[in-house]
Design a protein around this nucleic acid. Structure first.
Lengths: 134, 134
DNA sequence: CTGCGTGCAAATGGTTTGCATCCAC
DNA sequence: GTGGATGCAAACCATTTGCACGCAG
């Protein structure tokens, strides 16, 4: 179904570049950071366009929008649900390489919610930030 | 330790009321909603004060600040980590009454992060929002 | 051609902050 | 009495949006 959704997508140079850049990195950049990355290739792109495209892409399930506790949203080129590590100090997000089964929610506990997916985040302090305070 | 932290806390009428109101409800109100609730009791309280207190209380671990994927943060009078259900349409958050063990992250996978806690959220569409579209 | 996508800039909206005053301890 | 807490309003900043033009299909 993901391919279904991507089918109807119009492929502008901007959108193409944003997606390519996002898939190139292993970090989880904010819209601002994506803007900076893409601007090196398309200097005339606007921040609004970056926001619009990140929105479109995440709605189509091509990329992942990470809620996060910070104010800024972060984006992940890998659209599959997978657990993350997030630093509560600097907001940095890392992929967690630990294949543990995300438990499916029994229907009798879903309280009428549908289309559920499971979001798991381990929140703590990253090595860099932990080092500064010690 | 929760009591330890709360010890040093100054107990103004505003802070007291905010905490009491937050504990009174089972919803997970936004700062705005807390403001509305508290204003009925303390009509002269300012939104800034509500934000400052929610910040203080969550930093001390007295209440829980929920990251959520939406823009607004929500708050939970129950400071213990527990899984939530979140509606991706309206942003509503419910407590999930399903005691499954939040998996502890093995140190060898923590990538240097410390003080980790696990945040589990099932994201879907709530009964109300699902009903509207069908 | 047609309409979606873009650049630009202004508008939004949640959250934070500076400052003088107030009150809990 | 004293420093943290408050009310108010302005400041911030990430994100969104209106509009006229441009380009992909």
């Amino acid at each position: 179904m993901k391919d279904e959704d991507s089918k109807g997508i119009r492929l502008s140079r901007q959108r193409e570049t944003i997606l390519a850049e996002l898939r190139k990195v292993k970090t989880h950049p904010t819209a601002d950071e994506v803007y900076d990355m893409v601007r090196k290739i398309l200097p005339r792109i606007s921040l609004g366009t970056v926001y619009r495209n990140l929105d479109t892409l995440s709605n189509r399930g091509v990329v992942l929008r990470l809620g996060g506790a910070g104010t800024q949203k972060r984006f992940d080129g890998n659209p599959a649900a997978h657990p993350h590590l997030r630093c509560s100090v600097c907001g940095r997000v890392d992929d967690l390489e630990w294949p543990f089964a995300l438990p499916d929610l029994p229907v009798e506990h879903s309280m009428g919610y549908v289309d559920l997916r499971c979001d798991v985040e381990y929140v703590g302090i990253c090595p860099t930030c932990a080092g500064k305070n010690n």
